[in-house]
Design a protein around this nucleic acid. Structure first.
Length: 502
RNA sequence: GCCGCGUUCGUCUAGGGGUCUAGGACGCCGGCCUUUCACGCCGGUAACACGGGUUCGAAUCCCGUACGCGGUACCA
């Protein structure tokens, strides 16, 4: 079935801006592009859009690339792996953009403009006073300082004198620009709503709008899959393709990821809602990349059946743009936690030991890998994150520092001290200490004293762990070992002996 | 303000005119299992934004309203 879908000419790209670390929403955009490429046997490209020198953040590019790799999203072409249509960093393609702006200038589809920021502000202010939009467009461009209003000689003089200028797109009036979007169907916008977008900034760098069109074309991008925030500016891109005489790639605008409180999941909102914003945060918090990817894939897409657990490869086999939803989606930490738990349980024990080990070392616990392996075996179904195997069950590594108050109240009875002291004695006298003998000894003692086994089990658990919940008592005892068990039971008898409630 | 895009349980969603007394998942609430907890299993709670059309018949098609989101930069 997938054979009919193989189209090696499919080329998609993820084009992040190095203005910050990789955002969780960016990872989803990258993921969808990746899945689409894999599904069709095409190529997935990463291109760094670093045309904004003001907002450039040192280290952001490395973080973006490292985060993608961590998530298992590999790319066929990119800044650090190269490729046939590089460079893959826009700052290194500067001359290319200048080359493609020429024909636009010559054909009158673009023009030089010399307005200062102050003049632009004044124009917008004035227009707004009159209740107009305040756009640099067909209605206002003739009132501004540009090649359309200045004498040709004057324009040339300014250019020659090295005065700062920008190049703007001359958007035609009286036209409706339509394009097909794979997620939304036909989208139409009146050209009158589109402004004369700056194509080349005064620092010589292209804007996103221009660079993105030139690069997508030069890099042979067949499908542009990006966030919905780009939908309103797509008409500008469509116009550019037309003026440049190029074919418009297929478009697909993905629904935005929303904060639980509404609105785009900005850094501020996400933090307020307890949602990590950057991919590296998920990594640091112990999320399984496969779980994150699985969760993210389902944020705006679903396979159409009721299955929810898919590995990256499985997703790549069934992903389709047709099944991408079109309404904004809220990020849900509970669901993510559930996914993480599912994946954690599926991981091989050895894998988990590896993941837990650093946390054991960080706590300074002196145990070996076999011991950690045993703990993992008992705890893996009770936690969401690997490190919780250490943090949620410290009693595997050190004697309890205290006893849960409510637990003592509920489980420590008048006869507990007596029973436990006797149990400790018998454990010490045991020839072999293991799960079976610990249990048999306890049950025999309970029977002799004419009490239910629970009368021993609960206070013993409390003595060993300090809490009232956890793995099966006898498994716990076996892992802890006889010495620790006897020591902890005696200690509890000493500390809680008289704390008994009737 | 203007333009665009959207609107099924709290959340992610199935659904593409009759099979919907609307299905699944997360969460939540019960129960079983376990003399603990978790896992697992069983059950429950809960939604087609509103108003008009079209049609024999609308969650599904059309229009309007409301609401939400996005855009409106020499940022991406």
């Amino acid at each position: 079935m997938s054979d009919t879908l193989v189209d090696a000419s499919v080329r998609v790209r993820f084009a992040p801006s190095p203005t910050g670390f990789l955002h969780i929403g960016g990872l989803r955009t990258a993921l969808y592009n990746y899945l689409f490429a894999r599904r069709h046997g095409g190529r997935f490209i990463v291109r760094i859009e670093d045309t904004d020198r003001e907002r450039y953040v040192e280290g952001a590019e490395d973080d973006i690339l490292a985060s993608l790799r961590w998530a298992g999203i590999t790319y066929d072409e990119g800044p650090d792996v190269g490729g046939p249509v590089g460079p893959y960093r826009q700052s290194e393609r500067r001359d290319l953009y200048r080359q493609y702006i020429q024909p636009l200038l010559e054909a009158g589809h673009a023009y030089y403009a010399f307005d200062t920021p102050e003049e632009l502000d004044a124009m917008r202010e004035e227009a707004r006073q009159r209740g107009e939009a305040g756009k640099y467009d067909a209605t206002t461009r003739l009132r501004m300082k540009n090649a359309l209003t200045l004498p040709e000689a004057e324009v040339q003089r300014r250019l020659d004198a090295g005065e700062p200028y920008v190049v703007r797109l001359r958007v035609p009036a009286g036209e409706v620009i339509s394009f097909h979007d794979h997620v939304r169907g036909t989208v139409s916008i009146d050209a009158g709503e589109v402004d004369d977008q700056v194509l080349i900034k005064s620092d010589g760098m292209p804007t996103y709008h221009f660079a993105n069109v030139v690069d997508d074309h030069l890099m042979g991008i067949t499908h542009v899959i990006r966030g919905e925030e780009w939908l309103p500016s797509t008409p500008k891109h469509v116009l550019l393709y037309r003026f440049l005489g190029w074919e418009v790639p297929q478009m697909a605008h993905l629904p935005l990821i929303l904060s639980p409180t509404g609105g785009k999941l900005s850094k501020r909102k996400a933090e307020a809602a307890g949602i990590p914003v950057f991919v590296k945060d998920y990594r640091a918090q112990g999320y399984d990349p496969e779980a994150l990817v699985n969760f993210l894939a389902f944020l705006g897409w679903n396979p159409g059946d009721e299955r929810e657990l898919f590995t990256l490869d499985e997703l790549a086999r069934v992903f389709s743009l047709d099944r991408v939803g079109n309404a904004g989606v809220q990020f849900n930490m509970d669901k993510l936690a559930w996914y993480n738990q599912q994946y954690l349980r599926q991981r091989p024990v050895e894998d988990l030991v590896e993941a837990v080990w650093p946390h054991v070392r960080a706590q300074g616990y002196e145990v070996d890998r076999d011991y950690v392996r045993a703990v993992v075996g008992l705890m893996r179904e009770r936690v969401t994150f690997p490190q919780e195997i250490v943090t949620e069950a410290p009693y595997f590594f050190e004697d309890p520092a205290g006893y849960d108050e409510a637990g003592v109240k509920k489980r420590w009875k008048a006869d507990s001290a007596d029973l436990l002291a006797a149990y400790a004695d018998r454990l010490e006298a045991l020839e072999t200490f293991d799960e079976a003998t610990a249990e048999a000894t306890l049950r025999a003692l309970a029977e002799e004293r004419g009490v239910g086994a629970g009368r021993l089990i609960h206070p013993v658990r409390l003595a060993l762990s300090g809490v009232t919940y956890g793995p099966g008592l006898f498994e716990l005892m076996h892992v802890l070992g006889r010495d620790a068990c006897v020591r902890r039971i005696r200690r509890a008898v000493e500390v809680l002996g008289s704390a008994a409630t009737a």
